[in-house]
Amino acid sequence: MEPGQGQVCLKVLRYNPEVDPTPHHQAYLVPVTGEKMSLLQALEHIYQEQDDTLAFRRYCCGLQYCNSCLMLINGKPSHACLTLVIPGTEVEVAPLRGKRVLRDLIVDDS
């Protein structure tokens, strides 16, 4: 899936342990609103406008301190809240490694 003008392509690793035999990738095209948008806002956009089965911790303290939105972004553990998405690019998004995946991007933090 190629991102068009003003769009970003999010390739999200999805996995629902209750029904999926293995994880799989799903690609979403998200319009980048305003000049700048964070990855967390792009995920919220997918949830609100495209696919309300996508699971991620929908919380943001706004201070990059709560770690709710820690995930692998292009292979690196990062905060989705303050990672910018750039129009015309593709971003790989996956749950943190080494923790049990509860669903999609949500891992067991207990």
Binding site: N16, E18, V19, T53, L54, L102, R103, I106
Partner: peptide, 15 residues
């Protein structure tokens, strides 16, 4: 509600 989505962290169910 997503009928095949299961119960764990099902976003539609929580919503």
């Amino acid at each position: 509600i997503d009928p095949v989505g299961g119960m764990r962290y099902n976003p539609r169910l929580i919503e």
